[in-house]
Design a protein around this nucleic acid. Structure first.
Length: 456
RNA sequence: GCCAGGAUGGCCGAACGGUAAGGCGCACGCCUGGAAAGCGUGUUCCCUUUCGGGAUUCUGGGUUCAAAUCCCAGUCCUGGCGCCA
């Protein structure tokens, strides 16, 4: 949420920022609402002032036994009461409308963010790992085919038990997943992160705090009730990213200056309906409804958030570097920023299995495995997360940042494709071997009748 | 799930229905040769250029001229009982 007073002070700047995002917001209407609200608020305050004076006079008169005068004052107080009720009802309605409108206003991009309309105008900052590529098979088998051959990814049975977009990891696939989780957590632990296991259901209030709600209800899985039915603050939803529970851990809290920067990492499952994405990525585990992820969340002092963003990006990248997976860094343009973000870097790993048009010259495709974002005070204001710089100073909103460190299925895809050998096995990247207990994924025999008669 | 008790500023903690004591911590100032002590001021949000005003005793309703205080509903915490991976 934006700060209302800065909205009043420089509406042109806000309007321009919103236009750069390609967002459609009636700023004029919001300013008008604010104006009206302030008017009612001032009138209500002054009426209340009058009533407070009358009230204390009643107390005094009663004390002195001057009943008649007290009676008169009581009548005056009653008529004030009625007036206050009217004015304040109006004020409350306006305030609510204003609040709703403010919740739909997107974050203002940082001035360093390149202006652009869509993801096509994101700016590539650098690549890593392409100078010294591993020798790949002639034909890299895409992860979904390889996963099926090795019987380590089972999409068919996932669809059967839960629906399209859900899948089983089996055998070395499951072990690879476990190994990656342990490995990532330990990398980030070295970087000063505190491990957190968050609750998976989160309430509507939390979803609003981080900016998922009210605009993106359709992307969430609701527990009980249909998504398009009205919801209450305490209705529950499946966690779409650990950013939600972990950031909201400190909702309505006041942290101390010496607590910051606070760095938490959380491994959790993530659930996304991917509304409007049906028909894309039907095969494989690139876009699914449930996936695991290690999430990095930072709480910092406002002055430090942009330095921290660079640091956070480095911390997330470290995972890919140690795994030896080639990747690139993009700086998102204004039109591609998410709702709450003021500046975002994407980390895209190279998956050589499927040749896509917008992939690198070496072939294959890019897969987004992390977005490192600075939300400035946008989430903090919505969720009420403040800090006290010095013990005697008043509390102020802090800045929040987060990045995936990293999203697991896409890293699995990159490993299965980039570390693939000509014989159809997959070499386990060095740092994962201690967690996997093996240096090679060889797969296993599938079970069940459906495995027969494939005609080979 | 049942029963009982509770929720007041950064923390602790008072307040016959009459308009939120006091203490601690922290900061600044005064005092001091310097420090301690002492004294003073400040330490939630909103409106207001200023002056000032309003709100705020967990949340939401209600009673009343007036609610921290009384009533109703809810949330969370504590204790006891029950259940339980």
């Amino acid at each position: 949420m934006l700060d209302r007073s800065s909205l009043r002070e420089r509406p042109e700047a806000v309007a321009e920022a919103i236009a750069n995002r390609g967002a459609d917001v009636d700023l004029e209407a919001i300013l008008e609402l604010d104006e009206q609200w302030r008017d009612r608020k001032a009138r209500g305050d002054s009426l209340r002032h009058d009533r407070n004076e009358v009230s204390s006079r009643i107390g005094r008169l009663k004390g002195e036994g001057r009943e008649e005068e007290a009676e008169e004052a009581i009548e005056r107080s009653q008529s004030l009461k009625a007036e206050i009720e009217t004015v304040e009802r109006e004020a409350a309605e306006l305030a609510e409308e204003l609040e709703e409108a403010m919740l739909e206003l997107p974050q203002i991009p940082d001035e360093s963010v390149p202006v652009g309309e869509s993801e096509d105008e994101n700016v590539e900052r650098r690549r890593w790992g392409f100078d010294d590529l591993r020798k790949l098979p002639e034909e890299v088998v895409p992860h979904y085919d390889l996963g099926e051959e090795l019987d380590i990814i089972d999409e068919a049975r996932g669809a059967k038990t839960s629906g399209a977009g859900f899948y089983f990891m089996k055998g070395e696939g499951a072990r690879l997943e476990h190994a990656l989780i342990q490995f990532m957590l330990s990398v980030h632990r070295e970087q000063g992160y505190l491990d957190v296991v968050p609750p998976v259901p989160v309430n509507s209030e939390s979803m609003r705090g981080t900016g998922q709600f009210p605009k993106f209800v359709e992307d969430a899985y609701r527990l009980g009730g249909a998504n398009d039915e009205p919801y209450d603050d305490d209705d529950l939803w499946l966690c779409p990213t650990a950013e939600v529970p972990v950031t909201n851990m400190y909702a309505d809290d006041i942290l101390l200056g010496e607590d910051l920067p606070l760095k938490h990492q959380a491994y959790s499952p993530n659930f996304r309906r991917e509304a409007g994405e049906h028909g894309t990525e039907t095969r494989g585990i690139v876009r699914v409804h449930q996936f695991n992820k290690v999430e990095l969340v930072n709480f910092v002092e406002p002055d430090e958030s942009y330095d921290r963003l660079e640091g956070l990006l480095g911390e997330a990248e470290e995972v890919l570097r140690r795994l030896g997976l080639p990747y690139r860094i993009l700086e998102l343009c204004t039109g591609d920023l998410t709702f709450a973000s003021a500046k975002t870097y994407d980390i895209e790993v190279w998956a050589p299995g499927d040749d896509l048009e917008d992939g690198p010259d070496e072939g294959g495709r890019w897969l987004e495995v992390s977005s490192a974002s600075n939300f400035e005070a946008f989430q903090a204001r919505r969720a009420g997360i403040r800090y006290r710089p010095e013990h005697h100073e008043s509390a102020d909103y802090l800045h929040t940042l987060n990045a995936s460190g990293l999203a697991l299925p896409r890293v699995v895809v990159a490993i299965l494709e980039y570390y693939q050998n000509p014989d159809g096995t997959v070499t386990v990247p060095d740092p994962l071997r201690e967690y996997m207990g093996t240096d090679r994924i060889e797969g296993h025999e599938a079970v069940g009748e459906s495995a027969l008669g494939e005609g080979e």
